[in-house]
Design a protein around this nucleic acid. Structure first.
Lengths: 317, 317
DNA sequence: ATTAATTACGTAATCAGTTACGCAAATATA
DNA sequence: TATATTTGCGTAACTGATTACGTAATTAAT
């Protein structure tokens, strides 16, 4: 099994499958050894029924962790051997009640010795191992239950991608990106408005020169997100967080969070005490992001944008 | 997964399979996450080829531990995607040399980040576990390589069966069993001879009264094996080990060994210094057994049995 | 130089599971 | 009470592997 030492743990799936195959391989022979006319795959169903109670197909499936068609097929095979009997539930015509037949019960007696010996054999292997396979599986089952492998990988990817994201100050060379990224999402969800063009066509004059600020997120050198802090003069708020845009190409790379976080930090460093923003509730991920950063819903502020249906503020600590 | 806590470790195969499924389940999604157009099952082949060398189908199969038809199919799928190229070996027309195409090499670059993240995710799970799954699998692979599960179970069965075998002194009530068990194997392999009947019809007079001995192996109370020690008067040997018979029903229960061992011990306790026996080389398991007990081949003794083609002796220590 | 045995590998059939789908019965909802 | 939804479960198709088998090429033995 040198191969797996090379590939590293990415191949844990393949390696598990091969061990499974090897362990399973002998199972049929073992039944033969004890003169028991049974297929290994029947075992979980058989064991579950051997507890004595009648069970439906679905109950069995849930019990042993298979899909119901799998149980359905196994039961029909066991039925052919005469190991189980079926009976319709009188109060619920859909349910197919299954239980061991006399022959099945006889087999369950015969099988006891085999279970003892296989158990002893597995224990022997365990005793010769440093790492306990049985317990390790239990732990993996638990940990995967809590968070799937996919989710864990997604987190790792995000972590790694975050390291590649660089937040830099606006420069004239980013004007085109600043415009394009915003036009992209605004015209996708809404329509461009007069005030959009003002800011996007002339960020220098409309935002920076008025005491505002713009940050750009670079991913591998390319601008993938932008965000502006527009100076407000209403006595209540210091800045408006606006013109936030992240390229769909950079999704899942945490760009939005890093950018928004950086802009809030920037506002703080500029001595802001309250930040305002306008958005629309159909932009769920954005609203979630603002919420995560501490923004709270407020109302009552007049706005030039027709697309605005939610207003939020952040009290800077 | 409460079910497996009930069944005990007999169900290790089923439990392994389910964990394998759960781990594998996410694999396809993970490739999608990285925008890599590849099937999880291709990975081992892909990885093996990414080492750079051209390989044949059979080499790949050996490398990754699959059957060759499996590799054959995978290669034909990868070929369709343009990830590999084939070329006939010029010096051996049977061999199909496979290597990554340019497109394949490009993919192998793209996949690197994914490998890093999956590895990190698996490491994270490992770090949260007491028992290391990866290492545990390695140990199981090693231990099963040395001795398969089937063989281990067989040993456990033999051990347990041995406990049920009881070796007792001959009594008149066992005469029928003594006769029947011997007639069974003698007439199966050879034909009954005059001297057989003498001993089997009258063990009391022919064996015991002349200073011989008979032991009976009981399995769950039933006589399943017999063995006699016949007094010899030739000056060289004290006893002949003879009329050893074990029911085919009791095969694999160690009855033969326990019986022969007991009869040798009995001979010892009777002060014997040399034991003799006659047999036939077609009775392989019997010869092996005698050998295991320390009997050595000798020659030259006259015998009344035509079926005898090997003579052995044991020098009692 | 034949003939026999071995090797490489493709195709077909099988296996133990899955998902997809559909029907009928039961339950919830308007 | 009519209608929609959910549930139980059987059938069919698919999946990722296997073993079985056949054929062609090579190698070994006579």
């Amino acid at each position: 099994m040198n191969f797996f030492e090379q590939t590293g743990k990415v191949a844990i799936g393949s390696r598990l499958r091969m061990l499974t195959d090897k362990v399973t391989e002998d199972a049929a022979q073992i039944y033969k050894l004890y003169n028991i006319d049974m297929q290994p795959k029947w075992f979980p169903v058989f064991y579950s029924l051997a507890q004595g109670e009648e069970k439906t197909i679905t109950e069995l499936a849930k019990d042993i962790g298979h899909s119901h068609p799998s149980v359905s097929k196994i039961i029909s095979e066991m039925l052919k051997k005469g190991y189980v009997k079926e009976s319709k539930d009188k109060t619920d015509g859909r349910r197919n009640l299954v239980s061991l037949s006399k022959k099945g019960i006889a087999i369950s007696k015969e099988i006891e010795d085999q279970l003892i010996d296989v158990n002893a054999a597995v224990e022997e292997i365990s005793a010769q191992s440093q790492n306990k396979l049985w317990e390790a599986i239990g732990e993996w089952e638990f940990l995967l239950e809590q968070k799937t492998l996919l989710r864990r990988v997604m987190e790792k990817k995000k972590e790694r991608d975050s390291l590649k994201v660089e937040i830099v100050d606006y420069q004239a060379k980013y004007q085109e990106a600043f415009r394009a990224l915003n036009v992209e999402w605004i015209s996708h969800y809404f329509t461009m408005e007069e005030s959009d063009y003002k800011a996007l066509d002339n960020p220098q004059g409309y935002i920076l020169d008025k005491g505002g600020y713009i940050l750009v997120a670079l991913y591998e050198g390319e601008p993938m997100g932008v965000c502006a802090l527009i100076k407000m003069n209403d006595g209540e708020y210091d800045f408006e967080l606006a013109k936030m845009a992240v390229s769909p190409k950079a999704q899942g790379k945490n760009v939005g969070f890093l950018l928004a976080n950086a802009i809030v930090e920037k506002a703080k460093s500029l001595g802001a005490s309250k930040i305002y923003l306008e958005s629309n509730t159909i932009l769920k991920p954005a609203i979630n992001l603002y919420h995560k950063l501490g923004f709270q819903k407020v109302a009552g502020k007049p706005t030039p944008y027709t697309r605005c249906n939610i207003q939020m503020e952040l009290v800077v600590k």
